[in-house]
Structures are given as structure tokens and as C-alpha cells.
Design a protein around this nucleic acid. Structure first.
Length: 621
RNA sequence: CGGGGUGUAGCUCAGCUUGGUAGAGCGCUUGGUUCGGGACCAAGAGGUCGUAGGUUCAAAUCCUGUCACCCCGACCA
């Protein structure tokens, strides 16, 4: 008790500036008293679970954050729940600040809505369908465009009520083909989705930019290193889209970007649509006549190149697609891949898929593995990647089984090609926007903004009346953030051999306060300190267990709170308490006089939180 | 959906090839010694061997079906 009063006297009114926990605007985590470890459910484990292959999955299991209930479906234990709540609250604050309104829509939705939008048939098995007791068809919402559009259609009739941006933070379900990586690619996950409605395209683009800046603020506030990249819109539709990618080597997405002389990013895109400029080089002069040679059983690029003794990039790859019902041959260099998304865009097509082996033979007359532009069925549309321009001395399929053409020259032997940018971008490719070579990175997609246009409003006859009394469909945008995935991405980006190193704004607690021993003096000093920190608005996990120090340190390293305070008999004899950041090595431990401990911890924590705030302001500037 | 693999104690796994009625480590309980980076000793509790069927005197073990889960691929907000 003495200690408590003592601290109270020297620290009369620690108040936090706006933005720090005690004074944050908008919603925040409900107040909880300091958590005593002896009462907490934090089932940490020493052994690495067998089926966890990525760091975040492994550490979330080991730190007692998640437990699997079924494939891709997890229970979020208290530590994880605290983190998700923090991420969600940052999202809330920034969305509210940007002028959006929060609502909550049903998880279970009637099939009729999906039939109206056309996605009941389009969405495929990823959409979990079920019947109610009366036999009516329902879905568990993987997303909420239909529901929100129906709502706004009924309730917003006039241009005067526009624009409006509605968002929710909800559990969603997508029956992923292959859930993996724990919470990173689960079937059930928490997502923030926002939908905006506008009278004009210009206004929808303004909101798109507004959301883009808001997202940059959100991820900066979460303490993450990320990049906004141009992206494909996928099945959601629309024609303008950016993904927010947290950079991590374990990321599932490949991105390319360019930088200026100061190493500042100038352009970034997902490789699936990053444009590649045509090569700048003189056309090669053909030196030899084309001839057909036997290549028995050599079908793949590697086999053919190896057999003929040429480099793979000298083999012309021919891939056959069905584009809106018509066969198309796509060509590229043997060391590259034809990108379906680019092909679709280049041909202005709706549906693109690869042909089956049988279909290849029917449409080209070629044996499987030996298709090529030279001598195939006349009338077949052939599109070539401009990486092939001006090349000579190439190898391509001989149409007949077990044959290839050699010494093929583009232009001389193969003409009437349509040229397009078809291959997936790589490091070193020339970026046509910035005229410098691409750099490559991997990322985890944590956010995605889409300009939707009128796709859903037209399909669902959602219209408003304009000033001119004319009815028009709303122009829409939608904007998603994976809350659970953001937490997983934070771990991928912030960990070491001992465990998680949470960025302070989304850490489960600001401070791990470890009592090294349960002697009355240690406990009373520790308890007093906990109360001081709590009074100043800090969140504290107080380890009051009767465990050996080693066990405690290991657990807190695993859990990863940014500030660790150790109170022990040894230190107290010298009159000190030990304070260390999770990111600092053991040797960096500060020995702080007992009387100054609270002040030191509060200042350190405040510094960490303020840094994230400043990063957010810089990111949205 | 194609290929591969695994289901044995709360967790990580051994036992299976060659059938004879189930083990280790971690964790848990109790007692003791310890106590500043995952302690030690002793005594315990805990398993329809995923599930259904078959073969057999006898099945964790062999056979068949089935379910679940994992990995690679295809696919994907």
C-alpha cells in the first residue's frame, strides 16, 4: 500500500495526448482491469505443432491465441481476440474519420438476392449454400454487396441522400478450395467491408481516393510495412482496383514495383496485371532456313530445349485458350508464362479458360505438346506476347507428333500475329509507366479497394432520382480489409526466434509485467506498479504466477507485448526495476530506480504509440 | 478436382513391415528439493488406437469401405 501511495504522489496526472489509449476518439476496447496471468486463459505450448507451416500460424498456436475447430475454422482465444479488437478499432476510427457509417448486416442471406445479382450461378462452390427448415435456399455471406445494395435501394431514393458510405466489421465465410496457413487463409474470418454509393462517377472516384488514403492510414497505424499495388478486380467486377499488401517473404502474392532515385516507390502492381513494356532491341537477322526436326516424346519446354541444345527462352511456348467460346493460341517465350488475366484484358474478353488436351487437337490439329503457330489450322486466332518481337532462331511445335520446327524467325516464318503484353511481370522487366526496371517482392493482401461502377446497382435495379428527375443506378465502390489476416500479417512481419514482436498499437497488452518470485515485497511493488500503469491508461498483463523466471520470460517473449517490466528480489535489493522493449536484446535491459519505473514505462509506451500515429499522418499526407 | 501423406493420452510422436490385448517425452495432479532465460526426484491420473465392417482363436497391427486432417498442384476476395 505504501508503494502505491508513493507512486501516486509523484505521478499526479499522467494524461495522454489525443490518440493515445486513454484519450482515443471513437470506440475502443471496453475497459478491462489489468489481467492477472493466473486468471487468464493463455495456453502457450513449447512444441511446434506439426501442421503449421508459416510463422504466424505456428506462433499463434504456440502463444495460445487460436485453436482449430475444423479446416480453416478457428476459435479466437482471449489474446487473439484482444488483437483483433484493436485492429478493428483502428479500422473503425479511421473509417469514421473518413465519413463512413458503421452498420451490421446478416451473416445468413436469402438466395433470391444472389439470384438477382447473378452471382448465385457465378460464384461457384466457394459460396456456402444451405437450406432452412422450409427448404428455402440461403447462403452464408462471403461478402455483402447484395444485402447492402438491396438496403440502399429501398431506403435511399434521392441524389440528396448521396453519397453514402456504409461499412461493417463481420465474420464472413468463404468455402475456400484449400484453406491453409492458419488464420491467414481460413474459411471463416473477420472482415471489414465498406460500400459506397454515389450519384456520379467523379464522386465515386473521389471516395475511392478517400478510402485509398484511409487504408494507408490504417495500415500505418497498425505499424505495418505495406504497399498499395494496382490489382485485378477478380470476380467482384469493376475496373479500378488497388490491393494493400503487407510485405513479407512468406506472402502468397507476388508484386513488382519501381522506385525513384531516392528509393521512393513510384509504381507498384500485382504481377498478375503489372504491364511489361516491349523489349527495346533490334530485330535479329535470320541466318538459317527453317526445318522440321524429330523430337520424340519431348513435350515440355525443358525437354525440347534440352534435347535440341537451346536455351528455354529460344523455345516458343504456345498455350491454347477458349476465349468467350472461341479458341485462341497465345504465344510467349519459353521461359515465361502466359497470364490469363492479361490475355482476357488484351482481348477484351469475359471468360477465358485453358483448353483441355482433346480440345487442343480439335482446334489446332496439333498433337498435344507439339502445338505452334506454324502449320496449324488456318483461321485460328494467334496472339503473341511482344517479348517475342524480332526474335529469330526459335523452336516451335511441329504440329505433327514428335516434331518441332527449328530456326523459326518471327516475321519471316510467323506472321499475321496480334501483338500484346501477355506475360506475368518479373524482376528486371521494363515498366512502361516509369521506364525503369521492376523490383520484385512478396506480399500478404490485407486490403482491397474496388471501383465497382454500376455492376450491382444495374443488376439489382437500384436507382435514385437525380436533380433532373431522371432515375439512375448508383455508382458504387467497395472496400475490404481482412481484420484477422492483418493480425497474421503483422506477425509474419514482426517476429524473432523467441516469438511475436507486436507493433504497439495492435499488441494484446502494452506491457508484460513479470513478478520474478512471489515474496510479499516483490508482489506489493509489482502490484503498485500495475495500478500506476493502469491509472495512466496502459494495458498490463501481470504475470503473478508461481513459476520460474525462465518460464515466464519465455511465455512473454512468445506473446510479444512491446514493453516488458521485470520486478524481482535481486533488482529490488539494488532499488531497481528492469524495463526492456520486446525488440531489444536482453543486454539492453534498463535498470530503472523503483520510483521512476512507472514514468519510464509510460514514456516508452507513449513513444511507441505516437510513432505509429506519426506514420499514419505521413502515410495519408 | 488430380497426386502424396497422416489419424494411437490434452500436445509432439513411437509401436504396424513380422497379429498375442498399448508406450515415451512434454503437459496435468500430489509431495519434496530447487528458483533471474522453458529445473530435478518420487508417486499418480489420463487412451472405445478416427469410424464401420471383414479375415482370425486373437487386430493399433492384415483387408475393404467411410470420415477427418495435412502437404503439392489446379483454383481464388
Amino acid at each position: 500500500m505504501f508503494c502505491f501511495c508513493f507512486f501516486f504522489l509523484i505521478l499526479p496526472s499522467w494524461s495522454f495526448p489525443p490518440g493515445c489509449p486513454a484519450a482515443s476518439r471513437g470506440p475502443r476496447m471496453c475497459h478491462t482491469p489489468p489481467m492477472r496471468y493466473t486468471q487468464a486463459l493463455i495456453p502457450t505450448v513449447k512444441e511446434t505443432p506439426a501442421d503449421a507451416v508459416v510463422v504466424s500460424h505456428r506462433l499463434m498456436l504456440r502463444a495460445g491465441m487460436i485453436r482449430k475447430l475444423a479446416a480453416g475454422i478457428y476459435t479466437y482465444l482471449p489474446v487473439a481476440n484482444r488483437v483483433f479488437t484493436k485492429v478493428a478499432n483502428i479500422v473503425r476510427e479511421e473509417m469514421n474519420r473518413a465519413g463512413a457509417q458503421e452498420l451490421l448486416m446478416p451473416a445468413v442471406q436469402p438466395a433470391e438476392l444472389w439470384q438477382e445479382s447473378g452471382r448465385w450461378d457465378q460464384y461457384g462452390p466457394e459460396l456456402l449454400r444451405l437450406k432452412d427448415r422450409k427448404g428455402g435456399d440461403f447462403v452464408i455471406g462471403p461478402t455483402h454487396e447484395e444485402v447492402v445494395t438491396a438496403l440502399v435501394r429501398d431506403e435511399v431514393k434521392s441524389y440528396r441522400q448521396l453519397p453514402i458510405n456504409l461499412y461493417q466489421i463481420q465474420t464472413k465465410f468463404r468455402d475456400e478450395v484449400r484453406p491453409r496457413f492458419g488464420i491467414m487463409r481460413g474459411r471463416e474470418f473477420i472482415m471489414k467491408d465498406a460500400y459506397s454509393f454515389h450519384a456520379t462517377e467523379e464522386d465515386a472516384h473521389r471516395e475511392y481516393d478517400n478510402m485509398y488514403r484511409t487504408y494507408a492510414r490504417i495500415f500505418a497505424r497498425c505499424g505495418l510495412v505495406f504497399r498499395a499495388v494496382e490489382a485485378d478486380t477478380g470476380s467482384i467486377g469493376g475496373n479500378r482496383s488497388h490491393e494493400f499488401q503487407v510485405l513479407a517473404d512468406s506472402g502468397e502474392d507476388a508484386i513488382v514495383y519501381t522506385v525513384d532515385a531516392n528509393n521512393k516507390p513510384t509504381y507498384a502492381a500485382n504481377v498478375e496485371l503489372a504491364p511489361v513494356a516491349p523489349p527495346v532491341r533490334a530485330a535479329e537477322a535470320p541466318t538459317m532456313k527453317t526445318e522440321k526436326v524429330p523430337t520424340p516424346g519431348k513435350r515440355t519446354i525443358e525437354e525440347v530445349a534440352g534435347f535440341l541444345g537451346v536455351a528455354p527462352d529460344r523455345v516458343m511456348k504456345a498455350v491454347l485458350f477458349l476465349v468467350d467460346g472461341k479458341p485462341v493460341m497465345a504465344l510467349c517465350r519459353g521461359d515465361r508464362d502466359v497470364n490469363e488475366i492479361k490475355l482476357k484484358k488484351a482481348l477484351g474478353a469475359e471468360l477465358v479458360r485453358m483448353l483441355t488436351d482433346d480440345e487442343v487437337t480439335i482446334h489446332t490439329g496439333a498433337a498435344v505438346g507439339f502445338a505452334g503457330p506454324l502449320g496449324c489450322k488456318p483461321g485460328l486466332r494467334v496472339v503473341a506476347d511482344h517479348g517475342l518481337q524480332g526474335l529469330a532462331g526459335l523452336v516451335c511445335g511441329g504440329i505433327d507428333k514428335d516434331t518441332h520446327w527449328v530456326q523459326v524467325a518471327v516475321g519471316r516464318d510467323v506472321s499475321n500475329l496480334e501483338w500484346a503484353d501477355l506475360t506475368t511481370a518479373r524482376q528486371g522487366d521494363l515498366c512502361p509507366r516509369t521506364n525503369v526496371g521492376y523490383l520484385a517482392a512478396r506480399g500478404i493482401e490485407v486490403g482491397h479497394v474496388f471501383f465497382l461502377g454500376t455492376k450491382y446497382s444495374k443488376a439489382m435495379k437500384a436507382v435514385f432520382q437525380g436533380e433532373d428527375k431522371v432515375e439512375r443506378p448508383y455508382v458504387m465502390g467497395c472496400y475490404g480489409i481482412g481484420v484477422t489476416r492483418t493480425a497474421a500479417a503483422a506477425i509474419e512481419q514482426n517476429h524473432d526466434d523467441d516469438g511475436i514482436r507486436w507493433p504497439a498499437p495492435i499488441a494484446p497488452w502494452h506491457v508484460s509485467l513479470v513478478a520474478l518470485g512471489t515474496e510479499p515485497e516483490t508482489m506489493s511493488v509489482a502490484t503498485a506498479l500495475v495500478e500506476q500503469l493502469e491509472a495512466a491508461g496502459l494495458e498490463v498483463l501481470f504475470d503473478d504466477r508461481d513459476e520460474r523466471p525462465g518460464v515466464k520470460f519465455k511465455d512473454h517473449d512468445l506473446i510479444g507485448n512491446p514493453v516488458r517490466v521485470a520486478v524481482g528480489g535481486k533488482g529490488l535489493k539494488e532499488g531497481v526495476i528492469e524495463v526492456k522493449l520486446r525488440t531489444e536484446p536482453k543486454e539492453g535491459t534498463r535498470k530503472v530506480p523503483v520510483a521512476e519505473a512507472a514514468k519510464t514505462v509510460i514514456e516508452l509506451t507513449r513513444g511507441l504509440l505516437e510513432a505509429a500515429r506519426k506514420a499514419a499522418d505521413a502515410a495519408s499526407a
